[in-house]
Amino acid sequence: MRAFDYVRAERIDDALTALAEGNTRCLAGGTNLLDLMKGDVEQPARLVDITHLPLAGIEPLPDGGLRIGALVPNSDLANDRRIRERYPLLAQALVSGASPQLRNMATVGGNLLQRTRCHYFVDVGFDACNKRKPGSGCTALEGPNRIHAILGASNRCIAVHPSDMCVALAALDAVVETQSRGGARRIAMHDFHRLPGTTPQRDTELRHDELVTAVTLPPSPFAEHSRYLKVRDRASYAFALVSVAAALDLDGDRVRDARIVLGGVAHKPWRARDAEHALVGHALDDATLSAAGAAATHGARPYHDNAFKVTLAQRAVVRAIREGART
């Protein structure tokens, strides 16, 4: 690991000041950042240790929702009674990610900013990676790309976002709250992560001087009928090949409202709006399910090793809806 200046922030302002000076990363759980620093992928000049900031609470909001502090560990969030009962989709997603040890360390804010597991991004021994070294090319286009994107990719980058939590948050219409010295912002979860386009080096809309302070969840109509389904090579402790957050608001067997969000297929949690449209207003019969499954991958473009993800995503969507409806 390269040497860096270490700053311990006692107040949020300390962190914002440090961030404003540039080439600074926030150290919270460290699970992703230190990994990348050891691999020389991240080389910040300075770390600002934000672990002592008062951002580790989960508070009720007047509208019945919750505000989750950016420093809440993933395991605490998954086990919060309010999350388990009112947002079981999020609890399921959280416990399907990483390992118990990592979930004890990793924070909500850090999980939002998790970077891709693309082979060629995490290993600086590969010359070409536009995300790591803009303009250098994309090794994944020709190299082994079984784990890569089928939706929303560009010829500059076909990496996928690795988070499970973010997929559930996107389905739950979460909002990311940020602060900088310029003020506070609220960014809808769906808009927080970016597609690679011509600037794959930018994963999110977060500016370098901004700090994620919280995520808010609106009251959810989906608590009764939701399912996070993660399909992966190992039975545990593996990133998703495909994951699905299916959230349903049912009126009898008719779908009043729905969210279908896919993980493991795109540079961001992929909201399958066509699949949602195929569901809303319809009875959950086989025809509706298969229409939703097919619609979930509209516009998919697979690469040489990952065509299976199209089929897998469609079937996983059907399965997740079926299981979500049953709960």
């Binding site: 270490y6 759980g29 460290g30 699970t31 230190l34 990994d35 691999g39 395991s75 990592l102 004890n104």
Partner: peptide
């Protein structure tokens, strides 16, 4: 790199990967 768990220790009674902590 937090991928094997061999470095697991207890910090305030919670298990963590000591390799990814400063």
């Amino acid at each position: 790199r937090g991928q094997c768990g061999a470095c697991t220790v207890l910090v305030n009674d919670r298990r963590i990967n000591a390799c990814l902590a400063l």
